[in-house]
Design a protein around this nucleic acid. Sequence first.
DNA 1: CGAAACCGGACCAGAAAAGTCCTGAAAAGA
DNA 2: TCTTTTCAGGACTTTTCTGGTCCGGTTTCG
Lengths: 156, 156
Amino acid sequence: MLRITKQTDYGIVLLTHFGLADEGQLLSAKELAERTRIPAPMVAKILKILVRAGLLDSQRGAAGGYGLARPARDLSLLEMIAALEGPVSMTECAEMGSGCPIEAGCRPRVNWKLINQVVQAALEGITLERMITPAPACATLDLGLVRAGLEAPQRT
Amino acid sequence: MLRITKQTDYGIVLLTHFGLADEGQLLSAKELAERTRIPAPMVAKILKILVRAGLLDSQRGAAGGYGLARPARDLSLLEMIAALEGPVSMTECAEMGSGCPIEAGCRPRVNWKLINQVVQAALEGITLERMITPAPACATLDLGLVRAGLEAPQRT
DNA sequence: CGAAACCGGACCAGAAAAGTCCTGAAAAGA
DNA sequence: TCTTTTCAGGACTTTTCTGGTCCGGTTTCG
């Protein structure tokens, strides 16, 4: 659990196809639906969302289509997810200041903010460009470091 | 978005109350509902889940109630979430080997596994004990380290 | 003009989440 | 022993979200 929605998943797959296409080349919704085998109306819907969020540019008309609004190296996974399903935050109270009816006996709040930051940092650190590289070279990561960053008891 | 469910959120709040109580003290569902202001039937439901998952022990009868099955320092957030909403994985394909109809044009797979590991490491690194400490001292963390762990291009 | 695309929504069915309720079984105490 | 308290286990309802479809309108190219 803690899953991204299918729509978001689709959206990211679509974006990777833009990343793989030649710079500036336009891809149409229909074309993408065929390539990815995602249902066409769904593809159309998602592309519209991505345009509104500013991740894609669109061109209408007979030879129209969609293209990345920014180079793949400047597009983070965090932005993609935020565009497709709203700002990333694991709990309500980590996002909004308050309004939580539980607040009385709620201590975890502070830590949730922290966890959010970790998740966001992780997502922000992965770019579309990286998502499309063959990746065996990138397939390692040092979890020890992640953990260390989290445990840092107190900055001196 | 990317939220934990309300049920999970409640569950964690409940667990923190056990962490704060004296070691070995039993808390009843009713009592917890009053303290946390979470609807009583909900509390009952969640506590049952936590017992089945082995995070809590229960004692029936007049002076019965619930208590932590393990000390707070041995209980990670990852376990709590997993108990309450199933194993943590952000995408389907990151969990199951395959079955994904998109597989044809799907490159991100590898990176998803990676991201999952980061999230899991983050959640695993936070214990119940830590969730209940007043926390100003723990409120900092070095995001640089997290990012570094993620970017580690290649282990030498 | 007409075909090919995008635009903006409305819409629906099915699934999941949130929350309730009821019956039964154990343990403690009078 | 009988009553009370409290957990156990489900069934159930209601609400919300998600995945997916469809349509009328507009822009652009040929």
